[in-house]
Amino acid sequence: MSDEAVASAEAVSGPKSSTVIRDGLWDNNVVLGQMLGMCPVMAVTSSATNGLGMGLATMAVLIVSNALIASLRNWVSDTVRIPIFIALIAGLVTLVDICLNAWLHELYKVLGIYIALIVVNCAVLGRAEAFASRNTVALSALDGLMMGLGFTAALVVMGGIREVLGAGTLFANAHVLLGAHFAFLELKLLPESANTLFMILPPGGFLTLGMLIAGRRRIEAWRERVAAESAGCVPGAHAQ
């Protein structure tokens, strides 16, 4: 099937589930691919636990907001869709904020104002406008789940790297977020003498993010080279 035929089919039935999954987790990863939501990414990734909590909260908002907006897409006028999307997202974020304050108060105190800032996270509104308003409820919910998982994974990896190098621990205070049964996740990996305070300060966040983005681009370049070689299009071969 030609590329034009595939594009035409997707326009009618929406993108394939596999494409949605790959986009959310890797190709259009919110942090490493689109570089959106940088405020919470920089602020809460001083530990893997904080990154996990923020990622899960954002993922919940993404899933529900995408599903709601997809279900209402034929009822909302184009002239007022953005204000309505923002109002729906703001209401969902308020519910998440209240729930965290009620049941995970210690984590709520750590994440603080960054929970409320999910409302202005470009990734949430962007998925509502670019995807949920144009696709089915099921596909939009899947998109929210995958984008949320990709966002969460990036936050956890960033937080883990910074926490290990900066504090010598991994998933410190995990029991606060996940319950007492998950206390086994709390590891002490490095002695205090090996800690690098720089890594849990803001400059360490920028350094870690830059290294992860560079690593992702190296992987993409390698994948493109392997694909080209397997197709017999080795760079420079035509010049021989």
Rank of each mutant, 00 (worst) to 15 (best):
R127T: 11
N74M: 03
V120S: 15
L92Q: 07
G160W: 04
A123P: 03
V156F: 04
V41M: 10
C233F: 13
V137F: 12
W26A: 06
T45Y: 02
A60P: 12
L25K: 08
I98Y: 00
G205A: 15
D23F: 05
I213P: 00
S17G: 05
S193I: 09
A123L: 03
L125A: 04
A70S: 14
G179T: 05
L100P: 00
M1W: 00
A5R: 15
M54D: 12
G53R: 03
R81M: 00
L88M: 15
L190R: 07
H238P: 00
G53E: 06
I213G: 01
L107D: 06
G168D: 07
A174D: 09
R225C: 07
I161P: 10
T94M: 12
A90W: 14
A116H: 07
A9V: 08
G168W: 04
A239I: 15
V176W: 15
G24I: 10
G236F: 06
P235Y: 11
N101L: 04
A130Q: 12
L155M: 13
L104P: 00
G51L: 13
L88G: 12
A172W: 12
P191W: 00
H238W: 11
V110P: 00
R73Q: 12
A43T: 15
S65W: 03
V120L: 13
G205R: 15
L100W: 12
M146Q: 09
T94P: 00
V96N: 05
A214P: 00
N50G: 14
S133H: 12
A183R: 08
V119F: 02
A174Y: 10
L25W: 04
G37I: 13
N50L: 15
A123Y: 06
R225E: 13
V64C: 03
A221R: 14
H181S: 14
C39H: 01
A141L: 11
L201R: 09
M42G: 06
G14M: 08
A7T: 14
P15D: 03
L107N: 08
D143Y: 09
G51P: 13
L32W: 08
L207Q: 02
F184K: 04
M35P: 02
V120N: 13
G160S: 04
G168F: 08
G160C: 01
L62C: 14
M54T: 10
S133G: 11
I21R: 07
R22C: 10
L197Y: 03
R127Q: 14
N195I: 01
W103P: 00
E4G: 01
V156C: 07
F171P: 02
L201N: 09
I161N: 05
